[in-house]
Amino acid sequence: MSMELDSDRLVDAYLNELATEAAELPAGRRDELLADMKAHIAEARAGGATSEDEIREVLRRLGRPSEIVAAATDGLVRVEVPPRLRPRDFVAVGLLLVAPYLLSFSGLVAVIGWGIGVGLLWTSNRWTVVWKLVGTLTWPIGYAAALFLDAFFQAPIWLSLLADTVITIGLITALALNARAPRQAS
């Protein structure tokens, strides 16, 4: 049993390294390459390669993941991956972060700024629906935390505002970090 687990770990580590090396390939080519390598490994295992040493030999014969990817990219044109965030996405994230703090200046300006940020967020292709919901609810969640501290713990105003700020900055940072580059055509 332990020998099988060690063999599985070797195969998993090899395939993970291959996937990492192949990350820049078009999605279709990357998936095809990973499927081919999995098929070769499964075939070798079905042929009796079960021990850790036998699996190591199978993986050695397949070649290092960097060499496999280099061979797979031979003749392909490298395509630049667009950046995760475009200027309009930075504006969306900035408005979602700053607009709630404009309430002391003008409630209307704060709501309009936040609304524009939400609109830019939802029209962007850089986030999943879940992250768009997180971005949309950042202001209400932070505000709810401040109200909760005030109502249930009679926390000082500075503590309620600090909690609001930490939650808002944390959620907006997570939103920005979870932006994705648009998918490449395969």
Rank of each mutant, 00 (worst) to 15 (best):
L149E: 01
L149S: 03
S160V: 04
W131R: 11
F152N: 11
G142W: 02
V134H: 10
A145K: 04
T173M: 11
W158T: 02
L149F: 03
I157G: 01
D164F: 13
I167V: 15
F153N: 09
P140V: 10
T168W: 00
T168D: 01
T173K: 12
P140D: 06
L175W: 01
P140M: 13
W139R: 06
A176K: 03
Y143W: 12
F152P: 02
L149V: 00
L175E: 00
G142I: 04
D164L: 12
V134Q: 12
I172H: 05
P140C: 11
T173Q: 09
T173F: 12
L177K: 14
L171K: 05
A174W: 06
T165Y: 08
F148D: 09
G135N: 08
F153A: 15
L159I: 11
V130Y: 09
I172D: 06
G142A: 08
D150W: 03
S160A: 14
L162C: 07
L175F: 02
W139V: 14
L161P: 04
A174T: 04
A146S: 07
I157R: 01
L149R: 00
F148G: 13
D164V: 02
W139Q: 11
P140K: 08
L147E: 08
G170M: 10
D150P: 00
L133M: 12
L162R: 04
A146N: 05
V166F: 11
F148L: 14
I167W: 06
L162I: 05
T136A: 05
I169C: 12
G170T: 07
V166S: 11
D164N: 14
L177D: 09
L161F: 13
T136D: 01
G142H: 08
I169K: 07
S160Y: 03
I172F: 03
S160H: 02
L149H: 01
G142C: 08
N178C: 05
I169D: 00
L159G: 03
D150E: 13
D164P: 00
I157Y: 01
L177I: 09
F153D: 04
L161M: 12
T165V: 10
W158Y: 10
V166C: 11
D150T: 09
A174D: 00
D164H: 09
S160L: 04
G135I: 01
Q154R: 12
F153R: 10
